[in-house]
């Protein structure tokens, strides 16, 4: 073995499997771990295992949580009549950060993108429909990123939700072009939620 240690080789292999990490970076990270104090490395290893063991997805909104249903779904002070549909868990954080929204969420875990092999069945869309059929909200807010894929997904959902008879709206496009929801500042995002527009009228 070129590195003189099979364990070190395995660690490099593991690191290089992570997104955006090449062979060279993986080697640097592995040597960093090798030099670090044992308690720090043990903490890191535990965090890795815990995230897999403890964090799960909420059975209702599909946000990340440690207990399902999550605290946002369980909170009795939040309005059931509003459901806000977002791409990723990080978008929930961004919208919560505005303090402008007191309804429920639904996380799709992506957007439609055939080029990336993502079709409707790969998103939490069936789950959204089932949930809306049951909870019958008065308004569904589509808060997807204002790019081509976000637009297409909104179009798709708008048609799918039409038979439910509730209002379907989209957050106002006050967000800088190409800017992800996650990076929009909370004032801008707050305004975009308040100024949302009804679709299909």
């Amino acid at each position: 073995m070129e590195l003189g240690s099979e364990a070190l080789g395995r660690l490099i292999d593991e690191f290089s499997r992570l997104p955006g990490i090449g062979r060279k970076t993986a080697r640097r990270l592995a040597f960093h771990v090798l030099k670090a104090d044992l308690p720090i490395v043990e903490g890191f290893a535990r965090a890795l295992v815990d995230v897999k063991r403890l964090v799960t997805f909420c059975e209702s909104c599909h946000n990340i949580t440690q207990v399902s249903p999550c605290s946002l779904c369980e909170d009795p002070r939040r309005q059931d009549v509003l459901v806000c549909v977002v791409e990723e868990p990080s978008d929930v954080l961004a919208i919560e950060g505005t303090g402008e929204y007191r309804g429920r969420y639904h996380v799709l875990h992506g957007v439609l993108s055939p080029l990336d092999g993502v079709g409707p069945d790969d998103l939490k869309i069936k789950e959204l429909l089932a949930r809306l059929h049951e909870s019958r909200p008065t308004e569904v807010i589509l808060a997807l990123n204002p790019d081509t894929e976000g637009d297409a997904t909104s179009f798709y959902l708008q048609k799918l939700l039409a038979p439910l008879g509730c209002v379907v709206s989209r957050i106002a496009r006050g967000i800088p072009v190409g800017g992800d929801l996650e990076f929009a500042d909370s004032v801008t995002l707050g305004r975009a939620i308040q100024g949302r527009e009804r679709l299909g009228e």
Binding site: L112, P114, L115, G117, G119, P120, T148, A152, Y156, K159
Partner: peptide, 27 residues
Amino acid sequence: RQRNETLAKSFVYSRGKNGASLAREPW
């Protein structure tokens, strides 16, 4: 490009009845 992908690989999206054309519609 996205729409062409649904045409080129319609078999991938043809799950269920009318799956492929439903998946193409937003594009």
